[in-house]
């Protein structure tokens, strides 16, 4: 029982970061209808840039964090303008392929710049000391991660709900033509979506980088976002958050209970098995809008 609770708690922490990255992913999909296979590479770049500022250049934590976020926003804007805007209206396969190609380029860039060795934040930003909550032990860094992930989730939820820009983004997601006729710049909303998508992923990268260290495998983190958003419904932001948390817990539990039967590494593919099952029984996820087709 104690082991089970422990698994749920650690799963919840990783799941909160999944939720954060999945929110960026769902946001991009919702407003631009582009499915971003490079989300994981945004996570990777975020982790590396922050690490580079903090450990290699010796910038203090807060400026390093802010600088990483600024770079992520800038990257989102540039990529949207240069690569993704020409893709509007192209067939789905072209759009998918261009984000895959982007992922390849970004991954290669990271390897060229920083190599493939695992890098850790030194000195550690958050301590690894364990704190006891009843029967479960949680290390401090996990708590910080969980807190930060939820802080960002909350901030962006409020942003979509209450600010003018957030409302215009929801309008564009709902109906581009109507939004445009009401004087909302759809192009601007696309650009903002990409920059937010890049930003939350970069934050996710920094948070996970603090737990496990950073190397190229961090990009696989972005792949786990697919099960999360499919579970929640591809175009639902609350769905992405719930999906992220669920996938985090599920992969932890399946990983530790099935490993002995299947010979290790179940954690890596458990989310994808869940994904296939969801697609078979409920393709539009828990909160996704079911597409109704008329001839």
């Amino acid at each position: 029982m104690q082991e089970f609770l422990q698994l749920i708690v650690t799963g919840l922490v990783i799941g909160s970061v999944y939720a954060l990255v999945a929110m960026g992913f769902a946001l991009i999909y919702k407003s631009t209808s582009i499915i971003n296979f490079a989300q994981g590479e945004f996570v990777l770049l975020g982790g590396y840039i922050c690490w580079w500022f903090y450990t290699s250049l010796g910038v203090p934590v807060v400026p390093a964090f802010l600088a990483t976020m600024a770079i992520a926003v800038l990257m989102g804007l540039v990529l949207e303008r240069v690569m993704l805007r020409p893709m509007i209206g192209e067939p789905i396969i072209s759009v998918i392929m261009i984000t895959i190609a982007l992922a390849t380029v970004l991954k290669a860039l990271v390897t060229i710049l920083w190599g493939t060795q695992i890098q850790v934040f030194t000195p550690a930003i958050f301590s690894q000391d364990a704190i006891k909550f009843g029967p479960v032990l949680v290390s401090e860094v996990y708590l910080w991660t969980f807190g930060f992930a939820f802080l960002f989730l909350g901030v962006f939820a409020a942003f979509f709900k209450f600010t003018r820009v957030g409302i215009s983004m929801r309008a564009v997601a709902d109906d581009q033509q109507v939004a445009q006729s009401m004087g909302i710049s759809v192009k601007r909303v696309f650009a903002i979506s990409w920059s937010i998508g890049a930003l939350v992923s970069a934050v996710g990268g920094i948070l996970v980088g603090n737990i496990n260290g950073i190397n190229i495998a961090l990009a696989d983190f972005g792949l786990k976002v697919f099960p999360a958003v499919i579970l929640g419904g591809l175009d639902s932001i609350p769905g992405a958050i719930i999906g992220g948390l669920t996938i985090g817990i599920l992969e932890n539990i399946m990983g530790s209970y099935l490993d002995i039967y299947l010979g290790g590494g179940v954690k890596e593919i458990a989310p994808f098995i869940v994904l296939i099952v969801i697609l078979m029984i409920k393709p539009y996820g828990l909160f996704g809008i079911k597409e109704i087709e008329r001839v």
Binding site: S94, M97, I98, A101, L102, T104, V105, A108, I112
Partner: peptide, 17 residues
């Protein structure tokens, strides 16, 4: 290897655009 992947990605992007 990374350089090759990068060129590969750039070529695919260029073709798509």
């Amino acid at each position: 290897a990374s350089l090759r992947e990068m060129i590969f990605g750039i070529i695919v992007i260029a073709f798509l655009i």
